[in-house]
Design a protein around this nucleic acid. Structure first.
Lengths: 200, 200
DNA sequence: AGTTATCCGTGAACAACGTTCATGGAGTAA
DNA sequence: TTACTCCATGAACGTTGTTCACGGATAACT
């Protein structure tokens, strides 16, 4: 493949991803249609499949960007706050996660709503981004539980992330909870303030 | 409508729901197709829409049954264990929830994968079943926090359920965690054992 | 019992979807 | 300039959920 063709292909991939991202933001994952994308970026329907295997792969690319954004905002929530206690830092990160999910609900939902049954192995960037996120959580936890084994600490990291994720997930799902954003923050704070307390 | 017609309609609704349930169990929510259901229950495609508004409504009926089953197994996990401590009871209920989700993954997933954007108001049985589930959780919590205001207690109930749900959700999602079932139980236990501990 | 009216099961039809493929034109190499 | 390669094209295919005119079956009434 000539460099010229490579460039065109990359540009089309970029335009398609951007169009898909805007579409997800505006109307959700399910509203992403091949013909609409082709019309918006000015290419034919078939051209999409020369760049991406299928629409799932395209959404996966969008999800990659979203994951990076989450990593940015979660990491940013700690800047200037490294002196604070571990519980407080966990709360700061969780609230950053909540803020992103609340402000970019459709984008954030697409991360988990994407069909994963037909896909092959998990992309490496997916696991890498997740590992980075987990590392942020593991650090305050290791201060709270200095004697904990690495394996056990890793499990608690996953568990805590899953817990916060669950609170955000069901909290934003007005079908189930219908609580406001303040309430979601309260739930997260209530939970995280308990972590690491010793038995009296 | 004559009673005869009512009976036929109810029987068809039942057969359709059973067929949809089996289909979800075997191949997941997305594999439920109108023509397949019609063939399985021996009716025409159009007949489905005389009984249910659309396929979403049919799946909602299945979800109602699923919710009842969850309520049964969670409640059953407490029988004979009312003498145990509140933390232990929370763990028992959570493990019952985990067991159901692990043994009926497709059925359990359908509860949350169903599109909720197009649906109207939440069915009353949905809220009722959820309230029953929450009441089970609130009782041990009220023992752990006897001085807590009802509103705050309700929030903590939702938060804890959401946390356990999140752990089960991501724990069963091999794409993200890929941990085994023992690890999920450990995460739940780790989390719930911390609830209610006083600062030393 | 016979006649009329109402209902509802039927399956072809419709619109929209993701994905594919023969074709032809644009771009590249000789 | 010529010949060859590649890929953008959009019509076409197979499925999907949902609808609707039709006609037979059932109910209501005399």
């Amino acid at each position: 493949m000539t460099p010229k063709a490579q460039k065109r292909k990359a540009e089309l991939a970029e335009k398609l991803m951007h169009a898909a991202e805007q579409q997800i933001i505006m109307s959700g994952l399910r509203s992403v249609k091949a013909r609409d994308l082709a019309r918006q970026v000015g290419c034919s329907v078939g051209a999409i499949y020369n760049v991406y295997d299928d629409l799932n792969a395209l959404v996966m690319a969008v999800n990659g960007r979203t994951f990076s954004q989450i990593d940015v905002v979660v990491t940013a929530s700690l800047t200037g706050n490294q002196g604070r206690g571990p519980n407080e830092r966990l709360i700061l990160m969780s609230n950053a996660y909540l803020s992103f999910a609340a402000d970019n609900t459709n984008l954030w939902r697409a991360l988990f709503d994407l069909d994963m049954s037909s896909d092959g192995p998990v992309p490496e960037w997916y696991l890498a981004a997740l590992a980075g996120l987990f590392a942020n959580i593991a650090k305050p936890l290791s201060e709270l539980f200095p004697d904990m084994q690495p394996a056990e600490l890793d499990l608690m990291t996953r568990g805590l992330f899953s817990s916060v994720h669950g609170i955000v997930l069901l909290g934003l799902e007005n079908r189930i909870s219908g609580v406001g954003r303040d309430a979601i923050e309260t739930m997260i704070t209530q939970l995280l303030m308990q972590i690491g307390n010793e038995k009296k």
